[in-house]
């Protein structure tokens, strides 16, 4: 499974980053790379069947602690 993830992500990265690199738009490149790395990591972890904690849980905790219910 993770092979597919790596494969797809490498294609996406090639498609997305190559023009940025060529045009020397470094700011875009860095922002994009950060986002890309985060999503790649999550996808990779998911492909290893790891459970990623949902960001929804803490929000729910906070809200229920404030408003009850």
């Amino acid at each position: 499974m993770f092979i597919i993830v790596i494969l797809i992500y490498s294609v996406v990265f090639l498609y997305d980053f190559l023009p940025l690199y060529k045009q020397k738009e470094w700011k875009e490149f860095i922002v994009n790379a950060c986002l890309g790395l985060v999503s790649f990591t999550i996808a990779l972890l998911l492909s290893f069947n790891l459970k990623i904690p949902s960001p929804e849980a803490p929000i729910r905790e906070i809200i229920t602690s404030i408003f009850g219910k």
Partner: peptide, 8 residues
């Protein structure tokens, strides 16, 4: 420029 990464 950031749409693809953000979308994924």
């Amino acid at each position: 420029k950031v749409v693809i990464q953000l979308g994924s």
